[in-house]
Design a protein around this nucleic acid. Structure first.
Length: 892
RNA sequence: GCCCGGGUGGCGGAAUGGUAGACGCGGACGACUUAAAAUCGUCUGGCCUUGUGUCGUGCAGGUUCGAGUCCUGCCCCGGGCACCA
């Protein structure tokens, strides 16, 4: 572990040169395997994890390293605190973009993925993160896929994986089905393509079996409250009752509904079933069959998006059938309407238009009766959804809503026509995709119609090489369905012909358990060893973007609970503490022009934001309503006006530009590439700057000017240790003894920086280090001890600089495992403190008093002060408040 | 519509109910230099009559000796959910 340069004098470089020292230390860490981690029962563990990236072709943008820097600071800090730190990195490498690129160019996704991984790894390594690269994993590697498939087997064996004909979100553009969570406003989350609902046979995972536990166990997690809330809302627990309605014409079948307001049962005036409801066909009368079929056909054809569009507007048809209300035996007409969702509750409702807004709107439109059964509103005008006294409800009359619910629930049970029940919004997880670039399912479909698991010893099932990666759009088949030599196999049990499953798993599969594979990534006997799991789990700190609030984080928790149930893991939850980093926004300058279709050779007029307003289809000119298009310019492409220092368009110097801060994207021209930042300022500046611009959780704009200040700070750190000596540099001469002020400043900084890092307030930690570097030299050189402690405090944040200075200060070992500085309380205290003197809460004077001064002394000193005397001017002092160590407030 | 966040100088942002604006950027002035850059130093919320004057943390109130911070009502921005019975 010897570094191999004699400390003391140094050849060039003369000044702080990140391009020299950063590669040097990165090579050193790699060569010495500085951050390689093994199980060590003598030390406490700390598992700090980043959400591993999808290695896209665009490479890293400056948003990625924000989270990675935060976790790296914690990892390095915890090492110095004596923890055995697990800090791994890997690649979530299955996924759509590589496949879409393959469709466009014919390049195999494996090639693209490998290339992208190499680029990502190079970029991440250039930032000096202390990952244990011996644990690197790639979800597409057969050695990883094997265990993902192994886990699927466990799910299947426990009945948690099943195939079903379900209405799915089919996205023709992407040629695949999507999970509900991946559909936003009727469009695909990726790419924003339209989505239609179609019944297809798919793999499903029974996440609903875990709904209650997924909800309950959120309680003890140290997660941001909004994320917990989003998960709670997604799970959507709802307490109510199931009620059975007999059908008028059919004694066999019953219509079951779920309601949260069983207390309004007497107010039900009709029933509604979802168009997909299985009972529809059986109950529809001959006279209404044509209408019903037409309606079903129409709603089926409509995309989710169309449905969203006429939000609120109700549609439906009468089936001709009637149900009997169990409480009063009234005939209730059964309607079909798409405002009742097949996937929620029982797919059927009792409609109480007096006390439900949707039912009210529907009843009004189709002139169905509205009955008041809870007093407190005017049900003719609008549904009254609040609590109140039950009326027109026979044995419920006079009861308040809560009491009425209890009573009716008991009545339903007694009469065997229903019971109290809990329903969840959460639905089973649609787990198959009609794609190529994913994990194949470890199953075969026998000619007897049975689905059998492929034995563990035959895993992994790997993907065949393809030329054509397109899904077959018309009959919705996966690309693998076209590969008979892969698809057709012999059933190992019967020897008869059988087929593999042409679908693949969604991208989430690999990320559901990668944090467990990191514990023991080379294990070929098991996904990970019991010893490793017992030692390392749970993840102590997990940092990533808030966009995974209900997708990855819910799926991973679900799998983890299954693992817990089969004894694979010993914790109920995988991620004890979660932190969401904010986004780093790009800066650009916006204006508009009247060439929305980008036609060439046009006589284009430009508009400033002041001349533009938002029309229905985009920006238009305020003056004449002409459609316009927004244009964005990067600051680099603007010219600076020498007179007022403002930025302007090189061709339109008088055009007022609007400074906008947005998510970085190619179209805005506001993307900052970390490679450029590293080459201009170095990785340490990049790391520090990203931590300095604001709290980790908050979004903040990237500014090229701002990073200059950080670079200057690092130069000052450099000069604190080195000084020029002719053409070379040498260690500066340090003071042999610190002044009391210097000693106090150092201890205060240690205390503050330690607290800030613990609380992940990196911005204020950095500002405290800036103050230390500035002020410790104001009365002369610092001591070597102070310089060394500065290095140690700098080490988690600017590790290259810290290692280099540490070496120059005469150490021949990395500082990665040096002890974090401790506060010497005896040096911390001030001898004299400043007390603020207020009169009626307004500052009027300051007093310097000894730290030991009593409240009485301070009070009398304050009252005697000239300014107070002058301000009092004979008025009576009503009250004096003394806050020890802070202030005196004189009330007159 | 509902549910979360958040509104503090020219900008990013600091402030256990106790000196609002730490730290950084930008700006001004000064030092060094033939000069510039770099570096270092001083100043930098607004206003005025330049006084340790006055106003200031989205707006209007309230609690308090004292409010950026707590309470009530409103305005604006960002995000999430959106026929869930």
């Amino acid at each position: 572990m010897t570094i191999g340069i004699t400390p003391g004098t140094f050849p060039t470089p003369m000044a702080y040169t990140p391009s020299e020292i950063e590669p040097k230390w990165q090579e050193y860490w790699q060569r010495e395997e500085t951050f390689r981690t093994e199980i060590d029962h003598a030390k406490p563990k700390y598992y700090v994890l980043d959400m591993f990236p999808y290695p896209s072709g665009d490479g890293l943008h400056v948003g990625h390293p924000e989270g990675y820097t935060a976790t790296d600071i914690l990892a390095r800090y915890k090492r110095m605190q004596g923890f055995n730190v697990l800090h791994p990195m890997g690649w979530d490498a299955f996924g759509l973009p590589a496949e879409q690129y393959a469709i466009k160019t014919g390049t195999h996704p494996r090639i693209t993925t490998q290339k992208n991984i190499e680029n990502f790894k190079r970029q991440i390594q250039s930032l000096g993160f202390s990952y244990d690269w011996s644990r690197e994993i790639d979800t597409t590697e057969p050695g990883y896929v094997r265990w993902t498939q192994w886990i699927f087997r466990r799910l299947f064996e426990r009945g948690l994986a099943y195939q079903a004909e379900v209405p799915v979100n089919w996205c023709p553009e992407l040629g695949t089905v999507l999970a509900n969570e991946e559909v936003i406003d009727g469009k695909s989350e990726v790419g924003g393509h339209p989505v239609v609902r179609l019944p297809l046979k798919q793999w499903m995972l029974r996440i609903t079996h875990y709904a209650e536990r997924l909800l309950e166990d959120l309680e003890d997690l140290d997660w941001p409250e909004p994320i917990k809330k989003m998960q709670r809302d997604w799970i959507g627990r709802s307490e109510g009752a199931r009620v059975l309605f007999r059908l008028e014409t059919n004694d066999e079948a019953e219509l079951e509904v779920f309601t949260t307001r069983a207390d309004t049962l007497f107010g039900a005036t009709y029933m509604v079933v979802a168009p997909e409801h299985p009972l529809v066909e059986g109950i529809t009368s001959e006279a209404h069959k044509a209408d019903v079929d037409a309606y079903i056909e129409k709603t089926r054809r409509r995309s989710e998006r169309d449905r969203m569009a006429d939000q609120g507007e109700k549609s439906g048809v009468f089936t001709g059938a009637y149900a009997i209300n169990p409480v009063n035996h009234e005939r209730l007409p059964i309607w079909i309407a798409d405002y009742v969702l097949a996937g929620y509750g029982t797919g059927a409702i009792m409609a109480v238009p007096g006390h439900d807004e949707r039912d009210h709107a529907f009843a009004t439109k189709f002139q169905l009766p509205i009955v008041e059964v809870v007093s407190g509103g005017n049900v003719e005008e609008a549904a009254f959804t609040g609590q109140g006294e039950a009326v027109n409800s026979d044995f419920l009359d006079g009861l308040d809503t809560a009491e009425a619910k209890r009573t009716i629930h008991a009545w339903l049970e007694e009469n065997k026509v229903g019971e109290a029940s809990v329903t969840y919004k959460l639905r089973d997880w649609l787990f198959s995709r009609q794609r190529y670039w994913g994990e194949p399912f470890p199953v075969i479909h026998g000619s007897d119609g049975q689905t059998r698991l492929v034995p563990d010893e035959d895993l992994p099932i790997t993907l065949p090489d393809l030329e054509d990666f397109r899904p077959t759009g018309d009959d919705f088949e996966a690309p693998l369905a076209r590969v008979p030599e892969w698809l057709d196999v012999a059933d190992p049990e019967t020897g008869k012909p059988a087929q593999r499953d042409p679908n693949t798993m969604p991208q989430w599969a690999g990320s559901c358990w990668y944090f467990l594979r990191f514990l023991d990534p080379h294990n070929s006997e098991a996904p990970f060893s019991e010893e490793a799991e017992r030692y390392w789990m749970p993840v102590d700190l997990y940092v990533g973007g808030a966009e995974h609030a209900v997708l990855h984080l819910l799926y991973a928790r679900f799998w983890h609970k299954v693992f817990f149930d089969i004894g694979l893991v010993h914790t109920r939850e995988p991620f004890q503490k979660l932190v969401n980093q904010g986004m780093i926004l790009g800066e650009s300058y916006r204006y508009y022009d009247d060439n929305p279709d980008d036609l060439p050779d046009q006589d284009v007029r430009v508009y400033s934001h002041e001349e533009v307003e938002m029309g229905e289809d985009g920006p238009v000119s305020t003056a004449d309503g002409k459609p316009l298009k927004a244009r964005w310019m990067n600051q680099q492409d603007l010219t600076s006006n020498p007179e007022n220092g403002e930025w302007s368009h090189p061709e339109h110097p008088n055009l007022a530009l609007e400074r906008v801060m947005e998510k970085m994207s190619k179209s805005r021209g506001n993307v900052v590439n970390p490679d450029d930042v590293v080459s201009d300022f170095g990785a340490d500046s990049m790391r520090l700057y990203e931590m300095f611009i604001g709290p980790l959780e908050k979004s903040a704009p990237w500014s090229t000017d701002g990073i200059q200040g950080i670079y200057r700070f690092l130069q000052r750190c450099w000069k604190l240790v080195n000084e020029e000596d002719g053409d070379s540099e040498r260690l500066r001469s340090f003071a042999s003894k610190a002044t009391p002020e210097q000693a106090r400043l150092l201890e205060q900084t240690i205390q503050g920086v330690t607290e800030d890092i613990e609380a992940m307030r990196f911005n204020t930690a950095i500002s405290k280090l800036m103050i230390l570097v500035r002020d410790i030299q104001s009365q002369g050189p610092p001591t070597q001890e102070a310089a060394e402690k500065l290095c140690l405090m700098l080490a988690p944040m600017a590790p290259h600089m810290a290692e280099e200075l540490w070496q120059r200060l005469g150490h021949d070992q990395t500082l990665a495992y040096e002890k974090w500085p401790e506060v010497d309380e005896s040096l911390l205290g001030e001898e004299e403190i400043t007390i603020v003197v207020q009169i009626n809460g307004k500052k009027r004077d300051e007093l310097k008093v000894g730290v030991e001064a009593s409240a009485e002394t301070i009070e009398s000193m304050a009252l005697e002060s000239e300014r107070v005397q002058a301000a009092l001017a004979g008025k009576d002092v009503k009250k004096v408040i003394v806050v020890p160590g802070r202030l005196v407030n004189v009330v007159v």
